[in-house]
């Protein structure tokens, strides 16, 4: 004979169903007020809001990056615009050189634009910036123009060129 009775045998709702039902009915006479939901769940909304903001900012940043990348890909490259057959003979020859960015011959009609057109392809675009960046990286500063006129040939010149490219690509200037 077991000396320890299971706890379920002790008087509880199963043994006194009517008492349990009446006690529950009494308890249910005072349900939690709706105002409590507002106060507790309202506090939760305050917690959620920054999370939602963070997600929103992250989504916006992703969209901005996607637009930027797409814009870069959609910019017509010189090779696409200019058929090889249409290129001038000297230009075609220059394109075969390993240091293409060194070719500084003016191509565009506007002299001012040609100053920035490092690749001499008739456009001031991201390829010019790449060419300048490559020149700085390889220490070939002799081929870089002093865009900011500070007497030195360094990344600041690249910054100035990049800023100009951005302005051009946004359509604020159309000098290329």
């Amino acid at each position: 004979m077991s000396t320890q009775q299971p706890q379920s045998e002790f008087p509880g709702p199963d043994e006194y169903p009517q008492l349990a039902a009446e006690l529950r009915e009494l308890a249910n006479r005072h349900p939690a007020p709706v105002d409590l939901d507002r106060r507790v769940v309202g506090d939760l909304d305050v917690v959620r809001r920054p999370v939602a903001w963070g997600r929103g900012v992250a989504v916006a940043a992703l969209i901005a990056v996607a637009i930027g990348v797409t814009s870069l890909l959609l910019i017509p490259r010189p090779a696409d615009r200019m058929m090889a057959a249409d290129r001038p003979a000297d230009q075609t020859a220059k394109s075969h050189r390993s240091n293409e960015f060194m070719a500084m011959a003016p191509m565009a009609a506007e002299p001012d634009a040609s100053l920035w057109d490092v690749t001499a392809d008739g456009r001031v675009d991201v390829l010019d910036a790449f060419a300048v960046a490559k020149g700085i990286e390889r220490g070939m500063t002799g081929t870089i123009r002093d865009f900011n006129s500070d007497g030195r040939l360094d990344t600041r010149d690249l910054d100035v060129l990049t800023a100009r490219i951005v302005r051009v690509n946004t359509g604020k200037e159309t000098d290329s």
Binding site: A27, H30, P31, A32, P33, L36, D37, V40, V41, L44, V47, R48, V51
Partner: peptide
């Protein structure tokens, strides 16, 4: 883990008990 919405479930599950 950051699923704040789960707290609402927990709240509705124990609201009446806490209130009583």
């Amino acid at each position: 883990r950051g699923e704040t919405g789960c707290f609402e479930t927990l709240y509705h599950r124990h609201r009446d008990f806490v209130w009583r």
